[in-house]
Design a protein around this nucleic acid. Structure first.
Lengths: 133, 133
DNA sequence: CCAATACCTAGTAAATCGGTAGGATATCCA
DNA sequence: TGGATATCCTACCGATTTACTAGGTATTGG
């Protein structure tokens, strides 16, 4: 039930990019703006790039920008790219769970939990976050 | 965003106890009924006991039972006793988060996520689970 | 050409996860 | 009173994950 540092850092960097949607930002700018360990952020940006969420420009005057409009990137998508499924029990997805005897209704609870989490994470986009501030 | 094996096993054992509310059940009975590694379950039951969720009887004819009515034990309470807060970001509780600049609205998202999770986990009790099956 | 920047490979200390082993202690029943 | 049956307690353990760090290579703009 914890959001990892990786996901938190990724979202902070992405929102920063969304708010700065005109030009590019360097990894170092993002790191200092959000107080994220620079080398760690670099590795996160690499994952976001290979996931197609961020585009990069190399060399001097280089940097990062969102690969798609901020309104089309949800928090849920970011989490899925970095960590897989939104909600799992012992690493297995709720719909794949099997319980014996009286524990059977537990499955429905995890399904409902996931649905509620999705309600929040799927609906909110980077644009929502960037304009709210 | 994962429910640990510990929490899953604990809930399964507790629901089993709730469904079997007349007498005692031994750790081994619970383990075989729910296919939980016996020694691991033993250590989980110890934590549930010190949390006051389960009561135990030692010796022959011993075993475990719920320490309180099943209707008064929520899933949220079980999780909190075993793992602490329902939802954290980098290990810190959502209300204690501080974000810089455009990332500020992220805090509200985590608060909302926690609220939705609580909606599910706080409302459902062991009795709800035990009678639903 | 050079400075700035992204990219890539590798490694690493610490914590957490998911257990296991083995014995000490209490209780019931015959 | 003596097993047998349980819980209880201490300790340990390998594998994985988490949160980083180091150091070099490739690319680009000026």
């Amino acid at each position: 039930m914890r959001v990892s540092a990786k996901v938190d850092y990724a979202l902070r960097a992405l929102v920063e990019l969304a708010a700065h949607s005109d030009g590019l930002m360097t990894a170092e700018q993002l790191a200092t703006a959000q107080k994220i360990p620079p080398k760690f952020l670099e590795s996160i940006l690499a994952q976001l790039r290979s996931a197609g969420l961020v585009a990069s420009q190399r060399g001097a005057e280089g940097g990062y920008r969102l690969a798609r409009p901020a309104a089309e990137i949800s928090i849920a998508e970011v989490i899925r790219e970095l960590e897989g499924p939104i909600a799992t029990v012992r690493g297995v997805r709720p719909d794949e769970l099997e319980y014996a005897g009286p524990a059977a209704p537990l499955r429905e609870i995890w399904l409902e939990l996931r649905a509620q989490m999705r309600g929040v994470l799927e609906q909110t986009t980077l644009a929502d976050l960037a304009t709210k501030s």
